[in-house]
């Protein structure tokens, strides 16, 4: 993956990208190279449903709120780093 033609990460996106890479052991991925607008799951970063569970734990520990499936926006929330970060910002309790 090269980092030349991707959208720039905001500071909060950098923080969450680092969290994703560390908690999911994405050893071959550089957090700064995650395009905030490209998919996290399946054909993007290649995350799967078990990663989503891991991610929900890390988010609850770091930001103090629980992810839920009945949120009809879930597909959008998990679609990329940017929308995930916006969701965390709007729900975080710490």
């Amino acid at each position: 993956m090269n980092g030349s033609d991707i959208a720039a990460q905001t500071p909060f996106e950098q923080e969450v990208a680092q969290l994703i890479v560390t908690s999911l052991n994405l050893e071959e991925i550089e957090p700064a190279n995650i395009d905030p607008e490209s998919p996290l799951f399946k054909d993007g970063l290649g995350l799967d449903s078990i990663d989503a569970l891991e991610l929900s734990l890390v988010i609850s520990k770091n930001y103090g709120f629980q992810l839920k499936s009945d949120d009809s926006n879930n597909v959008k929330i998990f679609s990329n780093l940017r929308s995930l970060c916006q969701h965390i910002e709007s729900k975080r309790k710490k």
């Binding site: 449903s49 989503a52 569970l53 929900s56 629980q66 992810l67 839920k68 499936s69 009945d70």
Partner: peptide
């Protein structure tokens, strides 16, 4: 029958 996946879903 609603989707339950995350711990908070199951709990609720």
């Amino acid at each position: 029958t609603n989707k339950i996946f995350f711990p908070a879903d199951i709990n609720c």
